[in-house]
């Protein structure tokens, strides 16, 4: 049996240290090792985006990230979006705008959207569509998702959508 590898990183602002199997991906490490079940396993091949997390602020597919490569890095998941009982504006807009149907893609959508708004607080509709271009919604509810992201952006800028 191959020895496990020690790994430490920051998960949603908290120092996290655990052991990973050789070849383990970040998604498994987050879900089974760190107990953060918000990133989802969809396709395991980089097509669906359900496992999207931010690594040092940039969106990455956690199912295709070798866990060992995130040593010392900053990981953000949907699990860290809310501030206690207060939802993040993106979560609030998704909820109010019925942007989640089955909800399986939502965690990845939220992180792709957060990466966009962190970089471009006032995106165009086309920029939103591009930002979630790697995230599939099998319920095909894309319009409410795009609307919700634009609504959140407007609220975060103190504007009406």
């Amino acid at each position: 049996m191959m020895p496990k590898t020690p790994l430490s990183f920051t998960l949603n602002g908290s120092e996290t240290a655990l052991f990973v199997d050789p070849g383990a991906n970040l998604l498994d490490t987050l879900r089974r090792g760190a107990g953060d079940l918000t990133p989802k396993l969809g396709c395991a091949q980089g097509t669906c985006g359900a496992c999207t997390v931010l690594i040092d602020g940039e969106p990455h597919l956690s199912c295709l990230t070798l866990a060992e490569t995130v040593e010392g890095r900053d990981i953000a998941t949907t699990g860290g979006l809310a501030d206690g009982p207060d939802l993040h504006p993106l979560q609030q807009a998704f909820m109010e705008g019925f942007a989640a149907q089955c909800g399986f893609c939502t965690a990845g959508m939220l992180m792709a959207a957060k990466a966009l708004l962190d970089r471009r607080p006032n995106p165009s509709r086309d920029e939103v569509i591009e930002a979630i271009g790697g995230n599939l919604c099998r319920c095909t509810g894309y319009e409410p998702i795009v609307d919700a992201i634009l609504t959140a952006a407007a609220r975060m800028q103190g504007r009406s959508a």
Binding site: Q45, L64, T65, L66
Partner: peptide
Amino acid sequence: GGGTLLMRAVNYGDQAFDTIVR
């Protein structure tokens, strides 16, 4: 490299290799 090819192969149990070099 970036993992988009190799980790996909790992996830799907590709038996053609047993070592990842990084």
